[in-house]
Amino acid sequence: MKILVVDDETDVRTLFEQRFRREIRSGQFSFSFAYSGEDALNYLREHASEVVLILSDINMPGMSGLELLKHIKQQYLAPPPAPPQVMMITAYGDDESYRQAMQLGANDFLTKPVDFAALKEKLTLLASHEN
């Protein structure tokens, strides 16, 4: 299962690669990284059908995670291919952000610091559905 992680903090890549090292080694998950909303859209344009899940930070300079979400939902208005799941991750766990994310069609809403154990469970569940 291919997952795109969008965050302006580059160290997120190292973190995810180590957290999911066994899953990556076993080939269960495969991660790609984009460091801005614009990067993410470019990547999706080239790998549209591959990405199953997008994990995006909300708070990023330039295009915010919520804008990215809006763009993605607009692009995938008419399937196929099936639209990827989008999980929002934010340091600001406020109601307004949550409401906006849900309104724009986010599949899930996580707050930082990320509980990787819980995230792993969610991803595993998703992967089993996928298969």
């Binding site: 973190l15 340091a91 610091p113």
Partner: peptide
């Protein structure tokens, strides 16, 4: 607070993952 939260999250996360390693 946000600017401090981010690096602190990394400190926590990298410590956790190092324990796992």
């Amino acid at each position: 607070a946000h600017e401090i939260q981010n690096p602190l999250n990394f400190v926590t996360n990298f410590s956790d993952v190092s324990a796992e390693l």
